[in-house]
Design a protein around this nucleic acid. Structure first.
Length: 622
DNA sequence: ATCGTAGGCGCC
DNA sequence: AAAGGGCGCCTACGAT
């Protein structure tokens, strides 16, 4: 017997915009689940007008539990999910990227989703997690006694003797933990089990909603769960798509910096030696120096009369004139960066051939483990400015690039609600009105505001800080309250409801460092660092939440234009657009900014700005 | 051998 | 202007 999955869903009278659980094993099948309350059991499938072009569907015996009804289907998941999305406009609920990635790779536009692991990071903080841990946490089960895959093999009868193993077809063990063999996916490779797994994602999501409802602002927290899930799906799309690279420009830039591609290991060693020698030639003879060893570099500099506590670039910069070797060393470091990190190997490993050039592909995550900014690997977030001319739009396309203006102080105004600071955001350059109010130079005002948000304590900004406290008391006490919570070791919440974890004092605090700094000073240092972190995390984290709302709003509003987001960089967006649609896309970006501000900002009068330009190469940005 | 850490630097 | 928050990635080094 074959049943159309869409007909199956109709048979259960799934309401529009309800939750539909999904579990996909790439290249295998898809599990679909709905909440039993919203489903009418045992109704015959409604064939006829609802049938959509979904190929190769085999129904598997429907299974139901108290909460959910589910079934598994074979066929092309992308096609099926596209049909479900059009037909039911549901919120698609899945565990993690194992389901999102094949959909994104298949080019499926998902309107609304719920990514359980992503929401867990919001609820629980941190980055390292797993489906098993998420489930355990939602059921108040300890991490320590969590069953491990292969535990039985390692410990034999000791671990499982006397334990009720229950029904292996149930993904949940009698003790409440998930079965490891289900989590790893090995056991779930049957369509029926994929259905159970999808149903369990629905259960997890429902528990997560209960936890989100306990946040100080439950409505906002739920909204954040939605936007962060959408951002995670965008990350799946970014990972599948990649950043357009003009290979000949990339090659030319690298050759310019480090010479032509080495032909052998010997050749590579020779080039490396020659690069080093240009620096070493400038110091008097002595013991061998390894430029990659900071201690060696320090003694090398001491040999020419430059004695420094460390060899960081900004410090070396101050001593550039003292000896020619300093400038040469700084030059060496830049070249070495290209040779080791952004050289031929980098291109080989991360750029995949594509129409008219290549695509730089990396892993993307919607939230780091700290304040919740997006992360990317493969150099996508730290590409040296000198290499950005290699990022070029493909034939028939242009980039629409946009970056948010002065986002952190504007976000500070929004989350603190400081009336005077909100007033300052009306200016295109908000440091101008601040400078006037403080009666200082603009540059001083800027340093002071940034210093207040980063937790700077010394130097020029310390004086202006006191002025800031008088002029913007609401914003400054907001920051100070966060810092104080951090210093005490307490967790803090971003405005969107993300939990910011705090680390504890070193438990084995017997350590005295070389300077003889003891436990008390050490504890004070840890507290101060936590204070700076908490102070910054509430701003950085809120800015990340706003940026993601802006980005996914654009993604939704621009679906029809063929515009593709190819890079997200904290406050900057790079969008790859067919030439015919660049003006429209630029306008949609600005509209999306207004919409995001309206939906996100806790203070309605805060003004957000973005600089938008149409360019051929990333380096063309002003 | 394999791992984690530290110094360093790229970007925001 | 000072050297503060985040990330990923490279190297060397010391622990296991």
């Amino acid at each position: 017997m074959t049943v159309d999955p869409i007909a199956w869903l109709h048979g259960h009278q799934v309401a529009p915009r309800s939750d539909i659980g999904l579990s996909i094993r790439a290249g295998f099948g898809i599990g679909v689940a709905v909440v039993a309350e919203s489903a009418r059991a045992a109704a015959p499938p409604q064939h006829g007008e609802t049938v959509l072009p979904v190929r190769a569907r085999n129904s598997i015996a429907e299974t139901s539990s108290a909460e959910t009804v589910h079934a598994g289907f074979l066929g092309d998941p992308a096609e099926l999910v596209r049909a479900i999305d059009i037909e039911f406009a549901p919120r698609l609920v899945w565990w993690d990227r194992t389901t999102a990635d094949p959909l994104a790779a298949g080019g499926v536009a998902i309107a609304r989703c719920w990514d359980v692991v992503t929401v867990h990071r919001l609820l629980h903080g941190g980055w390292r997690t797993s489906v098993a841990r998420v489930w355990a946490w939602l059921h108040d089960l300890s991490d320590a006694s969590m069953p491990q895959m292969g535990q039985m093999d390692l410990l034999g009868a000791l671990s499982d003797g006397g334990v009720d193993e229950g029904d292996p077809e149930d993904p949940v063990r009698p003790d409440g933990y998930l079965r490891p063999e289900w989590v790893t996916g090995a056991f779930a490779l049957s369509t029926d089990r994929l259905g159970s797994w999808a149903a369990l994602a629905l259960t997890a999501a429902s528990r997560q909603r209960e936890r989100l409802a306990m946040r100080p602002d439950p409505v906002r927290a739920l909204s954040t769960a939605h936007s962060e899930s959408a951002a995670e799906y965008l990350c799946a799309e970014l990972a599948a798509g990649g950043l357009p690279i003009d290979m000949s420009t990339a090659m030319a830039l690298i050759t310019d910096a480090v010479g032509s591609r080495p032909t052998s290991h010997g050749d590579e060693d020779r080039l490396r030696g020659e690069r080093d020698q240009r620096v070493l030639d400038l110091v008097p003879p002595g013991p061998r120096i390894d430029l990659r060893n900071p201690a060696d570099v320090k003694s090398m500099l001491r040999r020419v009369g430059v004695d420094l506590p460390d060899t960081r670039a900004w410090r070396l910069e101050e001593h550039r004139e003292r000896h020619p070797v300093v400038a040469e060393l700084l030059r060496w470091r830049k070249v070495e960066r290209i040779a080791t990190t952004y050289g031929y190997r980098w291109l080989d490993e991360h750029v995949v051939p594509a129409a008219g050039g290549g695509r730089l592909r990396g892993d993307w995550s919607s939230a780091d483990g700290a304040a919740g900014r997006m992360t990317a690997s493969a150099g996508l977030h730290n590409l040296p400015v000198e290499l950005r001319s290699a990022v070029a739009a493909e034939p028939g396309h242009l980039f629409v690039r946009a970056d948010l203006g002065q986002i952190e102080p504007r976000v500070l105004a929004a989350v603190s609600g400081d009336p005077a600071l909100i007033e300052a955001t009306r200016d295109d350059d908000l440091y101008e009105p601040i400078a006037q109010r403080l009666r200082v130079e603009r540059s001083v005002a800027k340093v002071a505001v940034l210093g207040a948000m980063y937790g700077a304590t010394t130097g020029e900004s310390a004086h202006a800080l006191r002025r800031l406290e008088q002029a913007y008391p609401v914003a400054m006490s907001f920051l100070e309250a966060a810092a104080e919570q951090g210093r005490r070791g307490e967790e803090v919440l971003t405005v969107g409801g993300r939990l910011i974890k705090m680390w504890s004092d070193d438990p084995n605090g017997q350590h005295f460092d070389a300077a003889g700094v003891g436990n008390i000073d050490r504890a004070r240092q840890v507290a101060a660092a936590r204070g700076r972190f908490a102070r910054n995390a509430l701003i950085q984290g809120a800015a990340a939440e706003f940026f993601k709302v802006w980005t996914i709003t654009f993604r939704t509003r621009a679906r029809s234009t063929g515009a593709n987001i190819v890079l997200c960089l904290h406050d900057e967006l790079l969008i790859h657009v067919p030439v015919a649609h660049v003006d429209e896309s630029a306008q949609v970006l600005l509209d999306a900014l207004a919409e995001a501000a309206h939906r996100w900002s806790p203070s309605p009068d805060v003004r957000f700005t973005a600089d938008v330009s149409v360019i051929e190469r990333w380096s063309d940005a002003k």
